[in-house]
Design a protein around this nucleic acid. Structure first.
Length: 288
DNA sequence: CTTGGGTCCTGTGCGC
DNA sequence: TGCGCACAGGACCCAA
């Protein structure tokens, strides 16, 4: 999926289009993604204004005028595209539809009063949508266990040291565990560990305090840089306008098996190993 | 409690 | 050009 930087990029793309706009029509084109959509979702959306578009970890939350929020998760392959529409063309009756034809895997379509159309497309359908009471957000089953935002004030080295204390799991697994810190995925964990010079195989509980300090800083840095670059574009991810993100050009280890390590004075080559079924990319020379 | 493995689904890229 | 296989950004669920 899109990890935190990609979801934040989507949020920033959607925000100006969605905030303050009223949903005039919701077209739910199949009964489910990863889970069934809530009963009557289309009706709960239609007629509502979107008050605010927020992000929590890798989830988007659109707060509605009804007091409910639409929760959206992009899974592995989910995309949201905006078609600005063209009211004038509709108004003069030249075109029955200002938007391009729907494509395969376009599962949810929201038409806004402004004429804009928001399309959720997800080939693998690991994504999710749900409705929740905005005031009870934190008790939602998908959000209740999430750890702190890595870019927020609650994520700091004392916190992480406490969470990692006594853990025998590899630090790679511990950082992917959303209960420890919420929003990292495979790419940015690999990248942060490389920047910190920490092997993904190291037991989380065996890191020194200075390594944890460094790791916290590097996690924040890599996420900030990725957001500034508009996220990373791999197979499926695009920004809301269909453009590519650019951060993938700055990967130091992810997807670079066999390439020379980019650390100054390091003669190592990037290796790939499998940890709990997922690829870890790292430099065995400078990550210890 | 922690940890690791299997699983959902479709698409793509590679080797043959 | 076609075919089969490995692999893909997530995270739930269950067994040990």
């Amino acid at each position: 999926m899109p990890e935190l930087p990609e979801v934040e990029t989507v949020r920033r793309g959607l925000e100006p289009v969605l905030t303050g706009a009223t949903i005039v029509r919701a077209d739910i084109r199949r009964p489910d993604l990863r889970w069934p959509f809530p009963d009557g979702m289309a009706k709960q959306l239609e007629g509502n204004r979107v008050e605010q578009l927020r992000r929590r970890s890798k989830y988007l939350l659109a707060d509605l005028s009804s007091g409910e929020s639409l929760l959206v998760h992009l899974g592995m392959s989910g995309r949201i595209l905006i078609y600005p529409g063209d009211r004038d063309r509709v108004a003069v009756g030249k075109f029955a539809h200002p938007h391009p034809a729907l494509e395969k895997h376009d599962h949810v379509v929201l038409d806004l009063e402004t004429g804009a159309r928001i399309v959720f497309n997800d080939p693998r359908r690991f994504g999710a949508m749900d409705l929740l009471q905005t005031s009870a957000q934190d008790s939602h089953r998908l959000l209740v266990q999430l750890g702190p935002e890595p870019l927020g004030n609650d994520f700091h080295s004392a916190y992480l040291a406490d969470r990692f204390d006594g853990k025998r799991a590899p630090v790679k697994a511990a950082l992917l565990d959303q209960r420890n810190v919420a929003g990292l995925g495979n790419i940015y964990v690999c990248e942060a560990l490389h920047r910190s010079g920490i092997s993904p195989k190291r037991q989380a509980g065996h890191l020194s305090q200075s390594q944890i300090d460094r790791l916290v800083r590097d996690i924040r840095d890599v996420l900030d840089e990725a957001i500034a670059a508009g996220g990373s574009s791999l197979r499926d991810y695009r920004q809301t306008d269909g453009d590519l993100g650019y951060f993938q050009h700055r990967f130091r280890v992810y997807g670079r098996e066999g390439a020379p390590c980019s650390t100054p004075d390091c003669q190592g080559a990037i290796a790939r190993i499998v940890q709990s079924g997922r690829s870890s990319f790292f430099c065995p020379q400078c990550q210890r």
